[in-house]
């Protein structure tokens, strides 16, 4: 099995990690930028020295929409919510929000990543992810 450190910094690698239940990004070793998606060349300082980092997968909804008119591939899911989530580590990621009715999604809502297997069909047969609201702990501290 390939060590994470020697994997190419590509979107293919990112989605392979999603298939393994991990949310990852690249960190530029020169300017410390977090790159999500990972890239082979840092767009800020042009360095090619990267390392993989694993992200916790929690964040807050920065904005969202509810899709009612969808492309063919997603038509069976309407209406569905898509959000841009600001992760605790600072990077943003786009994904669907599931496990909550669209009308209950709010900007600022705390969410966490969940992983899904790839769907059948044409390229790309990448694994998928979505977000769900963070379960509120029932205990009162």
């Amino acid at each position: 099995m390939m060590l994470a450190g020697s994997e190419p910094f590509t979107i293919e690698s990112f989605y392979r990690h999603i298939g393994e239940g991990r949310l990852t990004a690249a960190r530029c070793l020169r300017c410390d930028s977090t790159l999500l998606p990972p890239r082979p060349l840092c767009p800020r300082c042009l360095s090619a020295d990267m390392e993989w980092i694993q992200l916790g997968g929690r964040g807050r909804v920065e904005t969202f929409t509810v899709i009612h008119v969808a492309p063919e591939e997603f038509r069976d899911q309407v209406p569905y919510t898509v959000a841009i989530v600001k992760l605790e580590e600072g990077a943003r990621i786009t994904g669907q929000v599931k496990g909550v009715p669209p009308e209950e999604v709010e900007i600022g809502m705390e969410v966490e990543i969940k992983f899904e297997p790839p769907r059948a069909g044409a390229w790309p047969r990448w694994a998928r992810y979505h977000f769900e609201p963070v379960e509120q702990s029932p205990e009162v501290s």
């Binding site: 990112f14 998606p37 929409t65 899709i67 492309p71 841009i84 990621i93 786009t94 669907q96 900007i107």
Partner: peptide
């Protein structure tokens, strides 16, 4: 493609994300 249309976003959806942020 890898982070927008692959996630089910459409063009109205992209501008809706901006609209919701602007409203908020």
């Amino acid at each position: 493609h890898p982070f927008e249309t692959f996630q089910g976003l459409t063009f109205p959806g992209l501008y809706a994300l901006m609209a919701n942020a602007h409203m908020h």
